[in-house]
């Protein structure tokens, strides 16, 4: 049996979709074991992980593991790798999980691949680089492959696993306790899906004009059950929080549908969204580069078009 460790991403006790994607991928490569760190574990979480094929669930929910930045989680995974000798470790390509993967790579002297969009037989990974401009196939040549997979790149499929729980007894070393998290500040974000996981993303740019006017972007997003994104011009202006920035120095998203309103389509913005399946652009400038990659474009004032679109979507539901 070739075991694959999958690091679980969860928020408020809910298993995130990317974890189900990783489990789906892991099943093609071997037998998935989920690794849960931090609090919030519940019978529902267990059921969810088992539903998508986790044979085992390793539980490391002591506060020690999550009270310090990244290092304890890397230590935990290294400990599990030592004990279980898996054939690969899969994590989500989020900022934090990539850091965990990086530290783990050093600890177990193994190669790490980030921003992977697919895994083929023989653990060959597909990566999309330079903002989607080049597709690369790469593989780890030393150690146990550690692979960070982008959210939304894999269609999920359920296939039951045993979901047997196993508590991990493990003590975090003092060396891993250097950076202590003293406070977690949650900025209110409402009930919208998370940007990188959302099937639909509606983004606003400088054309939106003000922080107040972002409400029309939010309304459209809500009518579609979408996440809200923003261009750097909009986050720099303080109209929308930084964590919603899409692009080269923001999040990379590959939703089924991406709607860009008042965004010119600079290369740095495209780097974060051009792998979306379908792109719709709304811009008053017919020459805006965003139209070069849009499947459907409307030239005109977004302050007219977006509310009308929201109304239509709501009407047709």
């Amino acid at each position: 049996m070739s075991e694959i460790l999958v690091l679980v991403e969860h928020v408020e006790g809910q298993v995130k979709k990317v974890t189900l994607e990783l489990l789906t991928l892991a099943r093609k490569l071997g037998t998935p074991s989920a690794v849960w760190t931090g609090d919030g574990y519940s019978p529902e979480a267990q059921a969810r992980l088992a539903e998508y094929g986790a044979e085992k669930i390793y539980l490391a929910d002591s506060a020690e593991v999550s009270d310090y930045v990244v290092a304890p989680k890397a230590e935990l995974l290294a400990h599990l790798v030592g004990e279980k000798s898996p054939v690969a470790v899969l994590v989500a390509a989020t900022a934090e999980a990539k850091e965990i993967a990086g530290r783990l790579a050093i600890k177990i002297d193994s190669g790490v691949l980030t921003d992977v969009v697919g895994i083929e037989d023989g653990l060959v990974a597909d990566q999309s680089i330079f903002g989607g401009g080049i597709n690369v196939r790469s593989r780890v040549t030393k150690g146990i492959p550690i692979v960070a997979v982008r959210p939304n790149a894999t269609p999920i499929e359920a296939a039951a696993g045993a979901g047997a729980e196993e508590r991990v007894t493990f003590t975090v070393s003092d060396a891993a306790k250097g950076a202590r998290i003293v406070e977690r500040v949650k900025e209110e974000k409402g009930a919208r899906p998370e940007l990188t996981e959302a099937a639909i993303v509606v983004s606003g740019g400088r054309g939106v004009g003000s922080a107040e006017k972002f409400s029309i972007i939010e309304d459209l997003a809500d009518s579609l059950g979408a996440a809200v994104g923003a261009s750097r011009a909009a986050t720099d202006a303080g109209w929308y929080p930084h964590q919603f920035q899409v692009g080269q120095t923001g999040k990379t998203v590959s939703p089924q549908l991406y709607i860009a309103a008042g965004i010119s389509g600079a290369i740095q913005h495209r780097a974060g969204m051009q792998t979306a399946k379908t792109i719709v652009a709304i811009n008053k400038d017919p020459e805006a580069p965003i139209f070069e990659l849009a499947d459907y474009g409307v030239v005109g004032d977004l302050h007219q078009i977006v509310p009308q679109l929201t109304q239509e979507v709501t009407k047709r539901k």
Binding site: F291, A294, Y296, G297, V298, D301, I305, L309
Partner: peptide
């Protein structure tokens, strides 16, 4: 990517979208 259809808003841009 290949560019798709681009329409001009004639007061019905939202409906077309």
């Amino acid at each position: 990517r290949v560019a798709g259809t681009v329409v001009k808003d004639e007061g019905d841009g939202g409906v077309k979208a």
